[in-house]
């Protein structure tokens, strides 16, 4: 995966495919001429964006900050819960049961409740983002904290390491790769959560932009918001992946193929 995206050739390929799709879309709209309310051409979407870039970027920023706040909170809370789950049977039973029950509820159905509790500001949106994102963080972190070589723990115990040292020196670094798997899922879920929040009660953000444009049957503006959402989600995902590469150069998935001097 990494190789596909890291090389400039890979990037050129991706951009090429994207441009081809846009060109095809433009041509199709020209040829088939569907009503603009059904499908506007890419050129129209671009014009709409350029006419009011401040409006779109301001609302993108709002959604982005909500997403990042929700994501950061999910990571902090999720890792904390995972540590508690791994360290205590009781915590495992309580937290896991609650988490699984919560996760099986459709979060959209919970959104109005959060609005009642927290008002129409940014707080309920962050809360919904956390609700959506935290599950994968907890599940993957628990997995990572648990899949430790028993001999590594034995080594620590023979050397009289405290449980805290074992957590910091062995369990946590060992869990990082799987925490990143969880984070890559969570970052997209946090964005979905932010949009859901804006749909339910919003006066800003890309979700709000979509609702307003829909009310005015302005399909082109809906598309501007969708494209911005796509770009936002993609960039966020690759930022997480870049951080992963930076922090985990030692992990199997990141290693170069060659093994210098191994004999």
């Amino acid at each position: 995966m990494a190789g596909m995206w890291s090389g400039s050739a890979g990037l050129r390929g991706t951009l090429g495919v994207l441009l081809a799709v846009i060109a095809l879309w433009e041509a199709a709209v020209w040829v088939l001429a569907p009503p603009p309310i059904i499908l506007p051409p890419p050129s129209r979407i671009w014009v709409d964006f350029v006419e009011a870039p401040g409006y779109f970027l301001r609302n993108s920023w709002y959604t982005l900050s909500t997403t990042l706040a929700g994501f950061a909170l999910s990571v902090v809370l999720g890792v904390g819960l995972a540590v508690a789950i791994v360290n205590s049977r009781l915590a495992e039973r309580i937290i896991y049961t609650l988490l699984v029950a919560l996760n099986s509820l459709p979060k959209v159905a919970l959104a109005p409740l959060f609005v009642i509790w927290m008002g129409t500001g940014v707080e309920p949106k962050i809360a919904i983002a956390v609700m959506l994102a935290i599950f994968s963080i907890v599940v993957d972190t628990v997995l990572g904290l648990r899949s430790v070589d028993p001999d590594a723990i034995a080594l620590a115990r023979v050397n009289h390491a405290s449980p805290f040292k074992i957590l910091v020196k062995i369990r946590f670094p060992n869990a990082l790769p799987s925490l990143f798997v969880g984070m890559k899922v969570a970052i997209s879920f946090a964005l979905v959560g932010a949009i859901v929040g804006e749909f339910v009660a919003g006066s800003a953000g890309l979700g709000f932009v979509i609702l307003v444009a829909q009310g005015q049957f302005d399909t082109s503006r809906v598309f501007v918001a969708l494209v911005l959402l796509g770009i936002l989600g993609t960039i966020l995902f690759y930022i997480v992946e870049a951080v992963e590469r930076l922090l985990l150069p030692w992990h199997v998935s990141q290693r170069a193929v060659a093994r210098p001097d191994g004999h």
Partner: peptide
């Protein structure tokens, strides 16, 4: 529990990758 002054070597090296 483990006594003081013990060193242990396992069948697998148990080196930490990071």
């Amino acid at each position: 529990g483990p006594p003081k002054g013990l060193g242990m070597v396992f069948q697998r090296d148990v080196l930490l990758d990071w």
